[in-house]
Design a protein around this nucleic acid. Sequence first.
DNA 1: CTGTTAGCGCGTTCAC
DNA 2: GTGAACGCGCTAACAG
Lengths: 346, 346
Amino acid sequence: MTVTLADVAARAQVSPATVSRVLNGNYPVAASTRDRVLRAVDELDYVLNGPASALAAATSDLVGILVNDIADPFFGIMASAIQSEIGGPGGRAGGERLAVVCNTGGSPERELTYLTLLQRQRAAAVVLTGGAAEDGAHAEAMGAKLRKLAEAGTRVVLCGRPPAPEAIALTFDNRGGGRRLTEHLTGLGHRRLGYIAGPEERTTTRHRLEGHRAALAAAGIEDDPGLTVHGRYDRRSGYEAALELLRREPSLTAIVAANDTVALGACAALRDSGLRIPEDVSVAGFDDLPFAVDAVPALTTVRLPLSEAGARAGRIAMGREEPPPGGIATVRGELMVRGSTAAPRG
Amino acid sequence: MTVTLADVAARAQVSPATVSRVLNGNYPVAASTRDRVLRAVDELDYVLNGPASALAAATSDLVGILVNDIADPFFGIMASAIQSEIGGPGGRAGGERLAVVCNTGGSPERELTYLTLLQRQRAAAVVLTGGAAEDGAHAEAMGAKLRKLAEAGTRVVLCGRPPAPEAIALTFDNRGGGRRLTEHLTGLGHRRLGYIAGPEERTTTRHRLEGHRAALAAAGIEDDPGLTVHGRYDRRSGYEAALELLRREPSLTAIVAANDTVALGACAALRDSGLRIPEDVSVAGFDDLPFAVDAVPALTTVRLPLSEAGARAGRIAMGREEPPPGGIATVRGELMVRGSTAAPRG
DNA sequence: CTGTTAGCGCGTTCAC
DNA sequence: GTGAACGCGCTAACAG
């Protein structure tokens, strides 16, 4: 039915072993033989059987990229960069790797499931992006799973995620970025700032919030728990959270959002409430996604080098770049001051 | 080294076949035996060998989702919906399928490469999303590849892509949407409209543009080729194209963009040129991505039910929903009139 | 309901 | 530089 390596061998009048060798290119083969084989491959329209190949070689060409939300450009941009460094030639037979992104939807269970699935496929490497859940049991299960993967020869790289002993990590300085962002606002004179945090029990959420609080403390501003609202990392959540903050504290002069998407939702809520940005309320985001600059007014935010970090993670996963010393590198964000923040009125 | 099915069988004191049966659940097994096996699996921390399983069964749990640009929410939203219908239980061993998204970057070659890779893996299904390249040779190669996949038992579904004889298609009515959108503008009295099209040689680009031109013709407006500018589907491209349009025709009163992202870029260009939206120039997009409503003013656009279409495509790919009659279903877009369009001044 | 027997298609020793 | 033989780990008949 389907063409196998043996068919190719027969047609090229060589042994299956020879066909395998030219396909994998890991072995000396006479040029004339190679030509004959390649011609036969072409004529028969032969496609290597991945599972059989993976079984025999005990390794596959699959590389997994886990993201929390594939509909969020934050992850899309990283995934795209990672994939671009992996998808190219350089793998086994055929010289191509199958770089593949898996959407966990932020669910710890699905994350674990995907890792098992990738483990089952004997993936060559796995890149985990974005924040991790902070649930203790889950963290432990993840650690164990990552260790298993590593033991089985799968390279594991974290990108934009806190370091773990089991893997190489490129981690974002969310705490520092959050701190500098809020310092910018306190520096402008703001004293009543609302904070729209991401989902609870997530590292990214916690780190950005800690940075925010550190900046408040440094400015001698008492932390009012009522001025922090948790939500999801989406626009709707930002909209609702902003309304809630305004209800709790009508006199606030600035809102810091967990990310740009949330900030955009907050902007909409402020506009719908008849408030001007930044005259009445300043707004700041995080990430500097492409649309941040298009907001009106343009969004003050912290730029994370998502593409660069992703590309580097991809190269490390492929073994084409040395891991950072100690297996951990911290990637800083850059404060981007734009029109959405200004000194408070009065 | 690694635990195999035989190890589990030994520990559970049954034959390997029995272990396979409980794992795949496709066969009657006594409850007590099953328990014993599952316990052994647990104790040994056994993970099925995917390649071996796929080899023996001549089919795998892998499902591929091809997207043109993973950093674009248009694709992210569809991919997310597709994956959510696929990722769940219902597959082979372990009851989970590995739904993976592959980023072609809009490159026909990469698209073909990914299909080959998925073919190599004996993927259970493949979903192709978004517009297709219109290059004749490539179209033919794609057709042949899709046929091969189908012959090998891979289910092929197109989502938001024009029908092809080799696959089931959920196609977007880009032409109709484009037409209604421009009709809305001509209905408001606009006579000089600029159009920012997507990349040339892409079905989506052509169909939307055709709809636009049909609406112009219907309104008795002569089509001025100079008022159409092609670009990529990104913000930057929209920005530059809008400036170019203004240069060519300073008196235009409306700009129709290939999609929302491009429209946002065009808005930025208009603002930077000191023009007001919609007082001086109306702007319209396409897709109604989540951020469209947050633009200032909110963007008039055509809403495409990306999530719904993706979910349906996913179910069809899984065989959990009947394909549409004739294998083709057309999904219409809905005109969303918002603040970015108004009657021209004067 | 369960065990036994054959391969699935390929990579990889070994010889030659 | 090339061929022959073996086994990777699992599933799918077939018996029983």
